[in-house]
Design a binder for these strands. Structure first.
Lengths: 204, 204
DNA sequence: GCCGATTTGGCAGTGACTGCCACTATGCTG
DNA sequence: CAGCATAGTGGCAGTCACTGCCAAATCGGC
């Protein structure tokens, strides 16, 4: 996504270039000293723009690095909209991403690794996940028809747990040198959930 | 929890009274105009203290109303520490609370209803839930022994989903006049999860 | 009634973010 | 190619959350 070239409009190109520059600067600074010890002024200066301009591109400093996160959510939501099986939608997106040219997955890896070690960033990412769940919830209730809103919510948030945990685990393992597969880790996380409910069936 | 009397120390009593006053003021103001449209100055003035003093009692304005939330988490964590079955721990806490004198559950009801309608508050509460999950995760790995940290995380976060959804659903229903039972709603939420994984077993 | 510890308020400062205004650059039009 | 509407940028002032610091008041024990 977000290809800097591929557009004839100079203004548009410039805009995308600036955006990319800010994102890169934020990524570097966050990795270096953490998001809390980095000010918007720092990021803006590193990207060669004013603070005011920074806020025209991103609403918060955390948002500057969470772009892939957002597009990742969008990709999953698109799948959910067509086939309303949340597990399949996530697994499919993960597989498609792993099979792709590698750029998005590398961005995701870097950001997820950052998130895993940065409390502030993790909080913000968690809120984004919650937003994503609300969207997905609406898609599911729209597709499967109304009735219990609670069911759709629980479904979305439950896969979201497995997905989030898998992303963190994957990022940590990859950073440690292992060549972990995202889809595999996700399925492992789902496996733990399944196991929980296998035991639970005793109660209910 | 937080009994205003029951202490001989006058200072301590005063402190608790001030704390309770601030909490009540925040609760009222948040209910009236939402947490974002309420400033710390507003809360402090309503509670009859300075802004500086407010921040000696609570680190953020959102924290002023999330006290029960915290003690609720503590109660669950205590149970997990003794018996490391997360479902049982949550269900047990819920049952004990419902059976109690009613004060904590009414506070919880009010706050949860607030949270369900206030985006900002919901975000903060979600972050508290995440913190709670991290604690619980540590307790589980400590009790059940190490190995996969991922499993403990997934377990905690998965029950947390059911719990959070149940709390919201319960608060909404109760506010609508129905006399919904928290434990029952929680079990319903868990039931939806179980159902998900019953279908999932086809894939795996 | 005095002393040490606690609590409080005020004030200045930082950092996130917004609204406003003037300035510049772009790209379209005659 | 000059001229103009529009988009993009920077600066500035302002609000709000939150912190550190210092002085005044209060409390509890002697």
């Amino acid at each position: 996504m977000v290809r800097v070239t591929d557009t004839t409009d100079l203004r548009e190109r410039r805009r995308l270039a600036t955006r990319a520059e800010i994102e890169a600067a934020a990524l570097d600074l966050f990795a270096e000293r953490g998001s809390e010890r980095t000010t918007v002024e720092d990021i803006a200066a590193a990207a060669g723009v004013s603070q005011r301009t920074f806020f025209r591109y991103f609403p918060t400093k955390e948002d500057a690095v969470l772009g892939i996160h957002r597009s990742f959510h969008r990709a999953i939501a698109d799948r959910i909209a067509t086939l309303p099986d949340v597990f399949a939608a996530v697994a499919g997106t993960l597989a498609a991403m792993s099979a792709g040219d590698g750029a998005p997955i590398h961005r995701l890896l870097r950001v997820r690794y950052l998130i895993a070690r940065d409390d502030n960033l993790r909080r913000v990412a968690l809120c984004l996940d919650a937003e994503f769940c609300r969207n997905g919830q609406d898609l599911i209730t729209a597709a499967l028809g109304g009735g219990t809103d609670l069911r759709a919510r629980v479904m979305m948030e439950t896969v979201s747990v497995a997905l989030r945990a898998a992303l963190d685990e994957w990022a940590m393992r990859r950073h440690a040198g292992e060549d972990a597969d995202l889809t595999a880790v996700f399925q492992q996380a789902c496996g733990f959930q399944l196991e929980m409910f296998e035991k639970l069936r005793g109660y209910a």
